[in-house]
Design a protein around this nucleic acid. Structure first.
Length: 275
DNA sequence: ACGATTGTTGGTCC
DNA sequence: AGGACCAACAATCG
């Protein structure tokens, strides 16, 4: 559920709380979260200072002193909390970074799907998952022409194409459904069938929607909170996600829920035309 | 009570 | 090459 807006909100919170902090010790009660050797991970982090925190797609990148970066993906339910060391550790806390100032950065993840890994800072964008990412959804980097050219070559459903992070980075199941509703495009439309006008509209809606969701602090559907444990408010701006059976805000037709590419997909059967 | 559902990435298989 | 499918998990929903 953390898609780009949620990850960006987490990043901003962490930036406020732990920028400049130094890691004293790392423990991992559930070591599977960490890719690579656990002892190596803990030892390498000791004494490093958090210099900056980036985001690329849905990945968080902690840039540390000594040219080392920690790449972290929250997957479904990963969360970061910052607490005083003597505060009781929450259930489902899997990695604890003790800081030299008496606080702890805690990674919490009910479903244990999240992963983190250390890479040399110079190679952070070469990391497997990040290397494959398409452009960030901003005017400067996400270009309509390239988007149209890629869609042209894809026979798969446009919804599936939006979730594949190589065309544009950051959309997940919720925002994919929303931008398709906004653009009046049926989620099962083969990507190669979109007209230039539809592609332009979809492109513009992706940029606008994700930016607005960031402004709202993300969407809290079930459990998402940022590093301050604050919920987002964009769930109040959703039009189709989770609205099965409710009237479409544009035409009053009941919103349908189907499965597209093994993902729950919400749309209006009247104003999102097929093909 | 218990099976289905939830969503992201990466791996496998074809 | 790239698409189809599944696994990694645990909680919640019906």
């Amino acid at each position: 559920m953390p898609e780009l807006p949620e990850v960006e909100t987490v990043r901003r919170g962490l930036e406020q709380m732990v920028l400049g902090a130094t890691i004293q010790e790392v423990t991992a009660p559930y070591p599977k979260i960490i890719n690579g050797d656990l002892n190596n991970f803990c030892q390498l982090l000791r004494g490093r200072k958090i210099l900056s925190i980036d985001r690329r797609g849905k990945y968080l990148l902690f840039n540390l002193s000594g040219e080392l970066s920690l790449i972290s993906h929250l997957r479904m339910e990963g969360k970061y909390f910052v607490k005083l060391s003597d505060e009781p550790v929450e259930k489902h806390t899997h990695v604890i970074f003790s800081l030299t100032d008496g606080r702890q950065l805690r990674y919490n993840d009910v479903r244990k799907f999240g992963r983190m890994e250390l890479v040399p800072t110079a190679q952070k964008f070469e990391f497997a998952g990040i290397k494959k990412l398409g452009p960030e959804p901003t005017e400067d980097t996400f270009l309509v022409k390239a988007f149209f050219d890629s869609l042209c070559k894809k026979k798969k459903a446009i919804k599936t194409a939006l979730l594949d992070q190589t065309l544009v980075a950051g959309l997940g199941n919720i925002y994919a459904d929303e931008v398709l509703w906004l653009s009046r495009i049926h989620p099962e439309t083969p990507a190669c069938h979109l007209t230039q006008d539809e592609t332009k509209l979809l492109h513009d809606n992706i940029i606008k929607e994700l930016a607005e969701a960031v402004e709202a602090g993300g969407t809290t559907i079930r459990t998402y909170t940022d590093a301050f444990q604050h919920t987002g408010s964009f769930q109040f701006d959703l039009h189709v996600y989770g609205k099965k059976g409710k009237p479409c805000e544009r035409c009053g037709t009941a919103i349908k829920k189907i499965v597209v590419g093994q993902r729950g997909t919400h749309f209006c059967p009247l104003c999102q035309k097929v093909e």
